[in-house]
Structure formats: C-alpha cells, structure tokens
Design a protein around this nucleic acid. Sequence first.
RNA 1: GGGCGCUUAGCUCAGUUGGCUAGAGCACCAGCUCGACAAGCUGGGGGUCACUGGUUCAAGUCCAGUAGCGCCCACCA
Length: 1033
Amino acid sequence: MSMELPKHYDPREAQERWLRFWTERGFFHARPDANRQPFCIVIPPPNVTGALHLGHALNNTLQDVLIRWRRMQGYDTLWMPGTDHAGIATQAVVERRLREEEKKTRHDLGRDELVKRIWQWKDQYEKRILGQLSELGCSCDWQRTRFTLDPVCARAVRTTFFKMFKDGLIFRGKRLVNWDAQLQTSVADDEVENVKQKGKFYYFRYPILARGSGTLDHVLIGTTRPETMLGDTAVAVHPEPARELDKRERELEANLAKANEKDTREIQERLERLRRRRTEMLPHLEQLAELAHAGTILELPLLGRKIPLIADRYADPEKGTGAVKITPAHDYNDYAVWERHRATGEPINILNPDGSINDNGRGEFRGRAFSYSGLDRMDARRKVVEDLQELGLFDREEDIENTIPLSDRSKTPIEPYLSDQWFVRMGDVDNQPGLAQRAIDAVKDGRVKFTPERYGKTYLDWLGEKRDWCISRQLWWGHRIPIWYVYAPENELKRIFAGRDDVTWRLDEVNGRWLVCALEDLPTDILGPKYPLEQDPDVLDTWFSSALWPHSTLGWPEATPELAYWYPTSVLVTSRDIITLWVARMVMTGLYNLDKVPFHHVYIHPKILDAFGETMSKTKGNGLDPLDIIARYGTDALRFQMVHLATETQDSKMPVANVCPHCDELVPVKMEHLGGKTRKITCPSCKKPFRPGGPWHAVDPELPTAKQASERFEVGRNFANKLWNAARFLFLNLEGYKPEAIRHEALPIEDRWILSRLATTTATVTQHLENYRFSEVARTIYDFTWSEFCDWYIEMSKRRLSDAAAKPLVQRVLVGLLDGILRLVQPIMPFVAESIWQALNEVAFERGLPAPEPAAESVVIAPWPVLPESWRDAAMETRIGHMQELVRAVREVRNRYTVDMKTNLDVFVRCAESVAGDFRTLTPFIAALAGVGRLECGPDTAKPRQSATHVTPEFEAYVSLQGLIDVSSETARLQKQLAEKLKHIQAARGKLGNSNFVDRAPADVVQQQRDLVADLQNQIKAIEENLRDLQEG
RNA sequence: GGGCGCUUAGCUCAGUUGGCUAGAGCACCAGCUCGACAAGCUGGGGGUCACUGGUUCAAGUCCAGUAGCGCCCACCA
C-alpha cells in the first residue's frame, strides 16, 4: 500500500484539524491518578485585556514542550491555565475607553457601574487571549481555567488576608505614591509622563540656629518647588566634598585619556567646570560639611521648625549650592535620604488629597504667624516666595528648563504624596523566621531550584532586604480589602462577633477606630445604625492574588483531590523580571498557607528583544504579532523558533519586517519607525503607502495595515517541510510494508549506524529536556533529522529500496525511524508531527523498533521513545564518519576540477576500500553518494573551475584524494594530538626537573605538576590503544 | 546608587566541569530541475572569539582590569 502526500506541508489546515481532534479526545484534561506520577505547571496568568505577544509565545511554548514531553513519558500531566485581572492595567484600559467614547470619568459612573463595565470587558477579552494560547497549541486543561477574581481565587485571597491579619502580619503604614491631585488617585509609574518645560529655580536662606563653629549664619538652598519647604525635615550636605571632587576629577582625567574626539570635548568641558567649582566653592562646601558633622541645627523659615543639617552623599558637591533641602513626604529621593536618617523625625505631609496645603502649613517664625493652609499648592508657591522676600531670606530666582512628571490621564503635575497604605510584614517576628526568611531558606536548602542558577541570587538578594510589602492600591478593580472601619465601644463588637471565628478586630492606634477583618463581606449596619461600618475603599495589589496562584487554582483552602495530588507543582516557567514580584511571593504564601513550596523548579527563560536590542513594548511600538507569524510561517515554525532561541544566557534579538500589503515585499522595521509615531510607510519596492503592523496597532480604514514577518521563522517552517517531505518519500516507498521484529545484530552496518544515532539522539534530547536546555533540544532534533536521517540514511536507503530482497527490511527500519522522530518532534512541533503520525497510522499502523506494536491514536499520547542502550555504538559512528568524509572529499574534488575519469575511479576505489575496511558493503553507497557512478557513464561536461598552472588538475585531484586518507582519518588526528601532548608533557617535565622550580614552588604545586604528568601519560596510553583498535579494524 | 548579564563570521546566535581544525541558520559565491523536498541538493569563501594583562603543559572557556551595550531593583504593574 502506498499513498501520496502534497508536496508542501500546509500548516493552516493541520492546525485547525488537530486542535479540534485533541480537544474532542480530551487529551489535555487531567484527573488525579494515584497510579501515575503527577506533573503540573501553573501558567503565568496573562493579563485579561492583553493580546498575545511574542513574550507569551515564548513563555507558553516552553511550558507546552515540558508538558507534552512529560505527558508522553506517562506522567499524569496538568497544565493549569488562567488569566490575571491585572488591576491597574485593566482599569486604565477601560477608563480610557470610557473617556474617549463617552467622555466620562469613573466618578461619573460610580464604583459599582465601573466594575460592572470591566467585568463585561474581561469576559470578552479573556476569550481572546485564551483562544490565542490555544491556537499556539498549548495543551492546557482548559476545563480548569481560572481567573484571579473568580470565587475560588477570591476565597483563597480572603482566607490568606484574614490569617495574616490575625497573625499580626498585616499592618497600616505610610508610603509615597504618585498622586494625581485632580483625579485624586494614585497613578502607576507607566502612567506618568515626563515633560520638559520652562520653570524657575529659586534660592533662599535657612538661618543657622545653633552654630558649632565657623562664620556662616545661614545655609543657601535651591529648589524648583518652594512650597515643599513647608514639609522639610532636614537639609543635607555632602560629608566629604573635597574627596568626592578629587575622585571625580581623577575619573574624568582617566576617561579623557582614551576618549574619542567627540567625547573628549564633552569631558574637557566638564573637567573645566569641575575645577572652576573646586576653586570657587570648596572652602564653602567644606565648611558646610563641618557644620553638619558638628550637629548644626537650622531654623525653617516661615514655620519656625528646627531642622538638622545632615551629612549625606545624596547632596552633590558639583551642583547648586551644595546643600539640599529634604522633604521626605513629597520627593522619592528625599524619602530615601530620610530612610538613612530616621532620627530626624517623621516625614511631614503638607498636602490634602486635592492638592491644597493642609494644616501642617501653619507656623510661627520670628514672632509672626504664617499660614498656607487651604491654599492650592501653586498659590502657596507664590506666597512662600513673597513671604521669604519680605523676610529678606529670599536670594534670587533663575529661569531654567526642567522636567516635570505629568499624569498621563489628567495632564496635571504629579505630586509625590505620603499616604496611608496596608502592608504585609516581611521581617522576622519574635525571632521566628518571617515570610521572607522562610522563602529564603527554601531556596538556600534546595527545596526550590532556579535554572539558570544565578537567578537564585536575584531572588535571595531581594528577599534579604525583607522590605515590607505594600498591598493596597487606590483602584476599584480588584479584590477589595476585607477591612471595615468603625468607631464603637469594644463591647459592641464583642456582642455581635463573639463566637465567630471568621471575624477579628484590632484597634487603629492612630485615630482610635476599630479595624475589623472578616472572611465574608459584612453588612455595614451589622452593629446597628449607631455604629456604621465603612469598608476600606482600596483594593489589593494584583500580586497578592497572583502570589496564591499555584494553590488557589488547585482549590485551596478546600482540601481538594487536585491540591493533594498536584501540589507542590513541578516547575514554574517565567521571565526574569518578575522573580521578585511574583516568584518570591508565591514561595512565601505557599509556605505560609500550606507549609510547602509551590514548585520544585523555577526555569527562567530569556527575553526577546527587537532588532536594536530593546525590549518589545506597546509604547515603543516595536512588538511582533505572533498571529502574523502563525499566518505566514505556521504555528510549528513559531514554536520551533521559540524553543531554538531559549538558550541559557542570551537574550535574543528579533529583527522585524512589515510585509507590504500591496506587493508582499519584506520591509525591515527601522529605528525611526519606533515609538509608535510612524503612521505611514512607503514601500521601497512598489512605492505604495501602508500602515506598519504590530500586535498593538489600531486599524486604519484609510490605509491598509501591513502584516509582520521575520526571516528568523523560516528555519522552523523549512524544517517542518523537510520532515513532511521525508515522510512523503517514505509513503511513496511503503508498498508491501509488513511489520515484523528486527534482529539488531543482523542488520546491515548503515542500519546499525542510524539506529545508534537515533538512540544517542533520543538520550541526548531527553537529557537536555531534563536540564531545561531548550535550544539544544531543538538543535539536536533538527540536526539528526536533517543532516543524518535525510542527508545520509534516506539517500543510502534508495539503493536498497530498488532491491526487492532488501526492501522489506529497510521499510521497517525507515518506518521505525520516522516513528521515533515524530515522537521527539511532537513536543516542539505538534501539528506537523500529528499530521504525519495520522498518515502513518493509515499505512503502517503496526510499527516500531525493535518490535512492532499498534500505534497510539495520536502522537500526543504516544510513549516517549526509549531505545536500547546497547544500540549505541561509538566505533560504528566513527566509521561512518570516515565514510562521510571520504564522500565529501570526492564531491569537493568533483566540484573543483575536471578530472580524468579513469584515474579518479582508480584512486577512489582505493580510498573507499581503505576507509570501508571490512565493511565492504559500504562501497556502493560511497560511490552513489559521491556521484562517482555517474562519472563512469559518460563524458564529464563540467568545465575546469580552477586553472592549474604548474600541475595538472588530474594530479591535484589525485593528491587531494591521497592526502585525504591521512588528513581526514581519526588516526592522523589522534597522532597529531598525541604529538602536541607529548610536547606539553616535555615542557611540564622540564619545569619539574628544574631544581629551581622544585625548590621554590610550594609542595602542592609540585605535586599538582606530577599528577598532571601522570594524567597525561594515562591519556597517551588510552590514545595509543584507540589507535591500535582503529588500525585493526 | 545596588545587582545581573552580554560582546564569537556581513546578520541572528550555539559553543556544559579549560583539551578539535571554533560551529549552525540566514546572507554571499559556484554548480545542480537526478522520481521526497528549489521552503531543496552539492561544494566553497568568510572569524586576532571586544581590548589589556594574568593563571595553566593548554584559554573563546578561568581570574583581574578597561571600553561599549542591555536588563532588573531602588517608585510602580
């Protein structure tokens, strides 16, 4: 029976067909099975509103490879899918649409309505992202799909929060946030836009109160935001200005020595400025430092507060007046300074949420009362300047251009603002290891292993700081914080909540109210109308629910069979930038809630960068849409490339091109196209305009949008096609195929060779998978399939297929090989593997090596190949290696020269015999593969390609072929190596023999040298034995 | 400011404890429409392994320094 396949592999048809087939058969659905080993991965949940991008493609392909491989190995395999509600990102998307389409803010809608809208949005977009993952071939158990806000996850969140609150791990604290005073909300960093604009720099004087020594009676400071002086808690100067300036000067001089022309000018200018400043300012700076060291106190103008002059490196001696005012409540850098000098007192918040000055803006100075309370911050700025002028403390103002942070949403200046937030305590409590320490221990003692190992350091360093985790966010979309505030006598609380173990409370020491924490929502009138409860308006940080993902998705806090069976999960696959935010927190909560780590391994994969080495992002507009790649090259090609670029260390640059929608020409994306600014590109080939494509492009009705492409995916596409055509060759030659067991020892040499290679390849691939060496996995399979199976074995099989007596055996071997290759390929390129597998099931249902068996109904559930170790034969592989070299050499000679046929044949036969040795059966293959046979049967029409001036081409060919045996053979190679080593040994001996060396070198070094010589001698012995073996046969 | 990584062919990248004549794909050159595959086959050219120094019998690989590039954390998702 034979059948014919189309000439090219059609990915589109295969993808649709097998996706449906797999789903119908339920191959991806898992149930706990005590008779099998569990293997489980939880997906890093993509943002619900996100679209699939290349990072997802990489991350999920790698997980799928592991899952598919383990499934074939017989593990009870669960890949748990789901999506993340991604608080700020999602709410921002919906709010933006609201603004653009209905000109409304969230306040117009109200909390409940906005949340309702986001849920609608979520339902729509969750389908999209999950559908895209499915298209990628991800073999997730889709029936178990979770969402971080669904009831199961919500219960886990509540339970954890409640437990932490009860354990005293959750507390109130202060933190600086980006405050949008107009919208009265905090804003995430990526929603802050830095804008250059004209502004003023103001200088004024702070009087020195208690002077240690010296002549100064004030300190001059400069600022762009004078009103923030109301919140100053200190003034900082550099502790060692002279040393610092010296150091910088030296550095600049050193740089100058090797700078190029352009940099030289810049450095020289800076050096000049530095030296001038040194001359002009240094005595003053030194005096300031001295004052700071002496504990000088300043008097804050207008408010009369006493603030210290402190020494801190943050104050740059090269800039300004050398002294910096410190306003910890309203500046991130100042806050950091304050953290180093906590003794200077608590940060002072001077703003109301609406941006006006609060009651901290009142005070008395030199007998006069000043108040800014209630003034808008911009009005306060003017009044502060006026008042300082009046007091004679104002020095001067300068026009400058500075950068100020604007809120992306309201376009008003962002105010860093110290506000009340909820925190989780990371540190140790009562000398017991806290959340951070327990997570640290888990990695230190190897319960959690990172691959590559170095990322363990990132994790440990970050956790080592044990910084408390701020978990509240001023948003509406997310898990609302289950805390209710109430002013009431404690008796009332006791009366209502006594005996309830799902409610607990604690006194808020700051304002005397109760903080009530509950597992379930509390009615606000539960204490009666006199004591209304008010729920905290904030929601939890998205990472709080993400941190529970490995156990919440498996049903915790319920004791589900899934949790018992699959937790801890096997491996977590993610990117390095969320090691701290996500990985560390999963370990913490896993240990906290279940006393078990959430996963045994963490595999960190590289990042895909654009052609210029920058991360792909929406704002840069340099992304690549995986769906375009799938459409153009096929899913298997995309997956192959993802696996192939997943190397140990290196991030991968991915040049992107737009496909001209008019003429299909690839137009590379250039630097100037980035930033999302380019709306139109003119095709250099057909001169027609189009809109650049990308995963984040908006549709433009006027202009056709380009699809994207990248040459990098051709490798995978070509490989899929190669595999397809190898299968096609088989199908054309399977007539009369009969399954039957083979006897390995009776096989011809080329069969034993390819089976040895298959066994080696299978073992290597398995090992690489175990070690997460994905790139090697792809490369090993690719090389074996293409360069050995196709290039050599199939070619050698052609002769035998035309020989009726030899045919049945070679058919069995070919089918067995293809079967094995398909199984190896399946985890990476499941669609093409399944296509061929199903076709093979039609014509050779019973197959396999060494004995045939009925095939699995899908390659997805076929067993992972394990071949007899005894099939691996290194000597055989070397022998065929020689043959290949001979063939290559003959081909080269044929390609280079026109040779006399008779001489050539004669020389060739001698070479072939010499190489083949006792494997005479190989000689015909050598002849066929080298094309020598054709030389015999007609005039060689090839023209001389290299002129021979002093030797005839025939002579050169002859010499090449003669030389070949010596140069190419393993014998010669080993001999050469041997000679090298002998030389080294002699050198080593010489050193040892040198009495000087023996006398002076430490004993262990001498011993080391002796060991080395002994070692080398052993190696030589081994080599010599090898040589003898080779010569004998 | 702290931490991590990268620099190997024109391009994108491999190169596991030091031990090859430093590899692959693409691109390039020459030749092949021979019954699996032109998304292919055969052969070829192309590298001071960023630079400087050190350790070693032996360095792309280990160590130190220099230069350039990138990422993460400091605030945030």
